[in-house]
Simulated scan of single mutants.
Amino acid sequence: MSAEATLLEQFTALDTATVSDALDACGLPPGQGGLRPMWGRPKVAGFAVTVELESLSGEHDGSHILTGAIAEAGPDDVIVVANGGRTDVSSWGGIVSVGAAVRSVRGAITDGACRDVAQARDLGFPVFARAQVPATARGRLRQRSTGEPISIGGVRVRAGDVVVADEGGVVVVPRERATEVLDAAQRLAEREAAIEAEVRAGVPLPQAMRDARLAGTEAR
Rank of each mutant, 00 (worst) to 15 (best):
A120E: 07
E167P: 07
A25S: 04
V181M: 11
A197V: 00
A69L: 04
T179Q: 15
Q186W: 10
D15G: 10
G202W: 12
G169I: 02
S90H: 08
E148L: 13
I195V: 15
A208I: 00
E4N: 13
V203L: 02
A3C: 10
G154D: 05
S91F: 05
V181L: 15
A17I: 08
A215C: 13
A118I: 08
A22E: 07
G147N: 12
V96Q: 12
V164T: 04
F47M: 10
C114V: 11
S91Q: 05
Q132A: 14
R177T: 10
T179G: 15
T110M: 11
G93I: 13
R191H: 01
L8W: 06
E167Q: 06
V102Y: 08
G46N: 07
D88Y: 10
D76M: 08
Q143D: 04
A159H: 08
S97T: 09
R140V: 02
G202S: 13
V98L: 12
I65E: 09
R200E: 15
G46L: 05
V181P: 00
F11M: 12
Q32T: 14
D183W: 11
D116V: 01
V19I: 07
L188D: 02
D15E: 04
R213F: 04
G27K: 06
R140E: 06
G216K: 05
L8P: 08
L23Q: 06
A165K: 05
V51H: 00
